[in-house]
Simulated scan of single mutants.
Amino acid sequence: MINRRQWLQASSAFAAALALGPRSSFAQATRTVKVGVGLKSLNSSVINLLIGEALGYNAEEGFKVQGLALGGNANVQVATDKGDVDVGIGVPSYALPILARNEWGNSQWFYQYTYPYKWDIAVKPGSTAKAYTDLKGKNIGVSDFGGTEYPVTRNVLKSLGVDPDKDVKWTAVGAGVPAGVALQRGAIDALAYYDTGFGIIDGAGIPLELLARPSNLPMIGGQFLMGLRQRIQAERDLFIGFGRSTAKASRFILENPSAGAKAFLKLYPETAPRGSSEEQAVKSVLEAISRRIKLYEPPYAGAKMGSIRVDEFVTEAKMNDWDIKDFSKIYTNDLIDKINDFDVEKIRAQARSFTG
Score class of each variant (00 low, 15 high):
residue 355 T to F: 00
residue 64 K to M: 04
residue 300 Y to V: 12
residue 45 S to C: 13
residue 211 L to A: 12
residue 207 P to Q: 04
residue 277 S to V: 08
residue 99 L to D: 01
residue 257 P to D: 14
residue 309 R to D: 09
residue 270 E to V: 11
residue 97 P to H: 02
residue 62 G to F: 09
residue 110 F to W: 05
residue 181 V to S: 04
residue 197 G to M: 14
residue 2 I to F: 11
residue 64 K to G: 08
residue 287 E to M: 13
residue 81 D to Y: 00
residue 265 L to A: 07
residue 310 V to K: 08
residue 185 R to K: 14
residue 53 E to V: 09
residue 238 L to K: 10
residue 347 I to A: 02
residue 156 V to H: 09
residue 68 L to W: 10
residue 296 Y to A: 05
residue 110 F to V: 04
residue 267 L to W: 06
residue 329 K to R: 12
residue 285 V to R: 07
residue 260 G to D: 14
residue 347 I to E: 02
residue 327 F to S: 00
residue 60 E to P: 10
residue 353 S to T: 15
residue 143 S to G: 15
residue 62 G to W: 06
residue 298 P to M: 05
residue 331 Y to I: 01
residue 353 S to K: 10
residue 104 W to N: 04
residue 198 F to P: 03
residue 128 T to G: 08
residue 116 P to V: 03
residue 58 N to P: 07
residue 210 L to G: 01
residue 188 I to R: 09
residue 111 Y to S: 04
residue 77 Q to H: 13
residue 69 A to G: 13
residue 67 G to Y: 11
residue 182 A to W: 06
residue 92 P to G: 05
residue 356 G to P: 00
residue 225 L to G: 01
residue 294 K to Q: 14
residue 86 D to Y: 12
residue 174 G to T: 00
residue 132 Y to V: 13
residue 192 A to T: 00
residue 298 P to L: 01
residue 286 L to W: 13
residue 124 K to Y: 02
residue 345 E to M: 06
residue 206 I to W: 01
residue 196 T to F: 07
residue 291 R to Q: 14
residue 47 I to E: 08
residue 46 V to P: 01
residue 253 I to K: 07
residue 291 R to C: 12
residue 260 G to H: 06
residue 216 N to A: 14
residue 257 P to L: 03
residue 333 N to C: 11
residue 69 A to D: 02
residue 196 T to K: 12
residue 5 R to G: 12
residue 167 D to L: 03
residue 46 V to R: 08
residue 79 A to T: 02
residue 1 M to H: 12
residue 270 E to M: 08
residue 210 L to K: 15
residue 168 V to M: 11
residue 93 S to A: 13
residue 222 G to N: 05
residue 270 E to L: 04
residue 172 A to G: 08
residue 281 A to W: 14
residue 296 Y to V: 04
residue 243 G to F: 00
residue 208 L to W: 11
residue 157 L to H: 00
residue 190 A to P: 01
residue 28 Q to A: 11
residue 162 V to M: 06
residue 33 V to N: 02
residue 26 F to Y: 10
residue 220 I to H: 03
residue 332 T to Y: 03
residue 323 D to Y: 10
residue 65 V to H: 02
residue 349 A to N: 14
residue 306 G to Q: 06
residue 267 L to H: 06
residue 205 G to D: 05
